[in-house]
Amino acid sequence: MKDKKTAPALSPYENSVHAYGRVFGVIALVIMLLIPLAVSLYFSAWPPLNALLKALLGVLPMYWTVGIIEVFTFVPMLGTGGSYLGFVTGNLTNLKVPAALNAMQAAKVRPGTEEGDVISTIAIASSSIITTLIIALGVFLLGYLQPLLESPVLKPAFDNILPALFGALGVVFISKNPKIAAAPLVFMVVLFMLVPSLSKSVSILVPVGALIAIGVARVLYKKGLLDQKAGKN
């Protein structure tokens, strides 16, 4: 009961987003368990226990840790509605988080405010609908699309989606806060140059970068080296 006293009062909108978010989230969880169950029942094919355990042992420690880290990293950026939706529809780092950040930036609202929450939810919902429709359409038109999508001419474009995305996103956010950005940027560039194999676990490095940035920001703020006025975008 302690957190009831300290937690800020939620608006009726936020409360209803929590309620519906949980309902949809629980349904999504049930679906994700029912699908492998349905596969096993329909084809009467159950996974051999030792193979299943062996594979899960390889997957769960890493994936479950990354999943938990993602929640703590992305929830403050996505807001309430955006989190409930984003953590069901997935593709967070390569799509939903940048879409939400871009939308809030363009609409001149801040994450953590109710306006930011609403814009982030609208962005993530639109993005989810379009993405789901494009993939579904693609699956049904695969015969026509496969030669085009797998053509060597277009391969570099798909290989370079992340650089194309983070170049534009980076310049916007870095130029707004170069003092906070400098230390984590230098750290990450040097780290990846020294240990290229880390590129497989970039999700784990996101909170590392965030901790460095927060530490630097705290020091700069305390020394009065950052703009002290609230509401500065």
Partner: peptide, 24 residues
Amino acid sequence: RWGEILQDALFLGMISAFVGLLFA
């Protein structure tokens, strides 16, 4: 104001990880 800076620092942490990745 510190709350806002905290938000920005969080974004920059994510962006710096992905910018670093470019150099892998």
